[in-house]
Amino acid sequence: MTSGFVIFGRLALAAGLICLCIAPFAFTPAVLVLLTQALSMLSLAMLWNLVAGYGNVMVIGQHAFVGIGAYAFYGFAMLAGLHMAVALPAAMAVTLAFGSMVYAMLYRLRTAYLAVGSWVVAETLMLVASRLPGFGGGSGASLPANLLRTFGARVPERLSTIYIMVLAVAVLTFVLIWALMRSRIGLGLAALRDNEEGAAVAGVNTRLVRAACFILAAPMVGLVGVLVTLQEGRISPVASFSMLDWTIYVLFIVVIGGLGSLEGPIIGTLVFFLLRELLQDYGTLYLITLGAISILIVLFAPTGLWGLARRKLGRDLIPLTHDPKTGGAS
């Protein structure tokens, strides 16, 4: 009975992935734009979930790394004139470096301090970005048409190329996190999520595991920042470092879907975009609703929608060898 639902869920996941793969040929540009946004948010949600849900590092300054990725990419590609294939990894390297520095600065803070501290850092970096010479100051700068043309001569082609890149990054992020969770580090992470003191007593190097989560997530977030820049065709301090887009929405997605699970961010992204399509005409009411839903979920279903569903199903859709609750489901 329950295993029927699990099989159904897995089939739905597989069908979804197939749809996403054929999307450039099957859907209109408008749908493709929506999917591109959704997959970018999904990547960010999975990464924030890795840091906060598994690593227990409560950051609310993730938007800093989106912005750094975007600005570093602009710097390498436009100001230094490097080729895309060089500028992209270079931008990731810069976010990695910033991620390590920020973590070194903040790691000893307790939860609440670290959260707001990471926000201060993000705010500072945003203000610095708006003063950087060559990056267009407070209003930002556009990517020139010739750079965008490397992704396709006409707009629909360009949309498809960027979509494929975003899809590839989302899949890569998922696989990376999945592989991480199945590794020895993943064992530590699962233990950390369930009981931090217990994990420490059981010999899990909690400091190392948390640092690994935070520092590994940074370049991936930076990569998403690059892709977002390509979608928008421009950088600006306000948009590239947008707390609402890259942290608040992401946080709502993960909380609603289910903190600390692989399925949570996927479900959260679906629900988030569904709500957005339904409610976005109501302006402020949309955000008020999101805020209220996330408060209710934290209060009454802290494991999110996936946590509720999982209680019925009894097992994960996406099997993890090291999940202590199922004890080796794959």
Binding site: A52, N56, M58, I60, R110, T111, A112, A115, I248, L251, F252, V255, G283, T284, L285, L287, I288, L290, G291, A292, S294, I295, V298, L299, P302
Partner: peptide, 28 residues
């Protein structure tokens, strides 16, 4: 108080939601 039995992370998430509600309520 209702979240007090849960961990610090969850209280932050709640106050975060509250912040978004107040900001947008004032905006409206």
């Amino acid at each position: 108080q209702r979240a007090a039995s849960q961990n610090e992370l969850q209280i932050i998430l709640i106050t975060f939601g509250l912040s978004v509600i107040i900001q947008n309520g004032l905006l409206g």
